[in-house]
Every structure is written in structure tokens, then in C-alpha cells.
Amino acid sequence: MTEPTSALLTVRDLRAGYAGTTVLDGVDFTVPAGGVVALLGRNGVGKTTFIHTVMGMLKPYSGSILLGDRELAGQAAHAVARSGVAIVPQGRRVFAPLTVEENLRIAAKGHRRGAWTPARIYELMPRLAERRGNRGDELSGGEQQMLAIGRALLRKPRLLLLDEPSDGLAPAVVHQVAEVLEGLRAEGIAVVLVEQDLHLAFRLADQVAVMQKGRIVHRSTTTDFRRDRDRAHALLGVG
């Protein structure tokens, strides 16, 4: 498949790892402006390492990470965030002792003006409005995930990195989270979605990229990937 020309995120020959070991071994990856790309692969192939490297949480050994025409490779996470990238990490990681309202206010503080405000988050996710006075550790897993998404949106991102948003959630709750994420399509926010739940990935993503051993080995539209059951089985063990 020909890669999109209007890429918001362009990653070239990215190498990264931990303590001198190599996890990402020459990753090439693009995300079109406003597009949703699902990054799929078996456990341990480097998907979360890739997300952390793009976000500046892990310094790459080499390679390029362009957001538009701005080089992000090697920048600290706070600088990457200021450039317009936000992450919803696996495990959600909301501030447990703080209320929903306090979590959102902290996330909004100090970030550039934009369309996303706590009021808009409550409009997008009415359940959070109902629970605005509850502490983070008083929320269900699904409510915590919604709060984590809300916190990320308040950073006014151009690119949203989602790492396993369905992790630990019941199917009915995953459906609720999917509805929230679908509501972002009209906002023009580009998304990289790392997800083991293929139903969710296929529901949200326009394109699919498959990682094996720290490299992207396949890229296609979601529609084409779902049609090719033999390829899906060979790459992911499903289909």
C-alpha cells in the first residue's frame, strides 16, 4: 500500500531499546493528518516501546520522528507534549487521590488555549460529569479510562497515542470507550492505537500496521486486512 502523502507523523528508521538492548530495529511508520492507525502485533514485539519513544519517554538510539516538519526524536516528553502529542498510557494512571474535577483541572493547567475544556470533556463523557466529585480510586475501570482520555484531550493534541485502551475492561465498557473515541473523529485528531482487542481496533482504525520483532512488516487499510484472513492469521494468529 502506498503511504499517505499528507502525513502528520512520519517515523523513519527508528531504533530504540533499554539498557543497550534493541527493541525497535528500524521502524518506518506514518500517520495521516486526522487518520487512525492501529498498531497491531503479538505481545513483546515493541509496540509500547514505540509509543513511549514517540512520546519522548524513551530516548531513541537513532532515527527520525517528525510531527509535521518538527523533529521530535530525542526530545523530552514535556517538549513532545508541547508540540501537540498526548498519550493515554496502558493502565490509565489517573491521580487516585484527586477527584475527577481536580484531575481535569490539573491536565488543563498551563496548556495552550483550544477547543478542549473540562466542560467539553463532560459533554463528550456525561458519566464523568456525574462522577466529577469522586476520587480517581473511586471510579470503575471504564470511568478511569474515560478520565485518562479526557486528561489527554485537555492537552489539545494533534496526535493522540492510545496504549491498550480496552485493557482490563468488560466488553460492555469497551463499547462505551469505543463510542467516546469514535466521537473524536470529527475533531481531526490523528490517533495511533495499540490494541489487542481486534474488534475495537477494526472498529476505530482506518489503517492497520503490524509489528514483528521491532519492525513494521505489513501495512494496509483495515478493510483489506480484514478481507485477507490468511494474512491476518499468519501475522497475528487470528482470522
Rank of each mutant, 00 (worst) to 15 (best):
K59P: 00
V94W: 01
D13L: 03
H52S: 10
N43F: 05
G41M: 08
L104N: 09
N103Q: 13
A77M: 11
D25R: 11
V94Y: 05
I65M: 09
G56L: 04
T53Y: 02
R105N: 15
G20S: 12
Y18S: 07
P60E: 04
T49V: 04
R70L: 11
S83A: 15
Y18N: 06
A38R: 04
A77H: 06
V85C: 06
L98G: 04
D13K: 10
G35I: 04
V80K: 02
V11K: 01
E71W: 08
S83L: 12
A38V: 10
G46Y: 05
A86H: 04
T22R: 10
V11W: 00
T10Q: 13
S62F: 06
Q75Y: 06
T48F: 00
G56S: 08
G68N: 08
R82W: 02
I51N: 01
P97E: 14
Y18V: 07
R82D: 13
V94N: 03
F29P: 00
P60T: 09
G17W: 05
A38P: 03
D69R: 13
V37K: 03
Y18D: 07
S64W: 02
L67R: 03
G74T: 08
D13T: 11
V54W: 00
T49R: 01
A81T: 14
L58P: 01
H78S: 13
T21S: 14
H52A: 09
K59Y: 03
A86L: 07
P60Y: 05
G46F: 07
H78E: 15
P60V: 10
V11E: 02
H52Y: 10
V88Y: 01
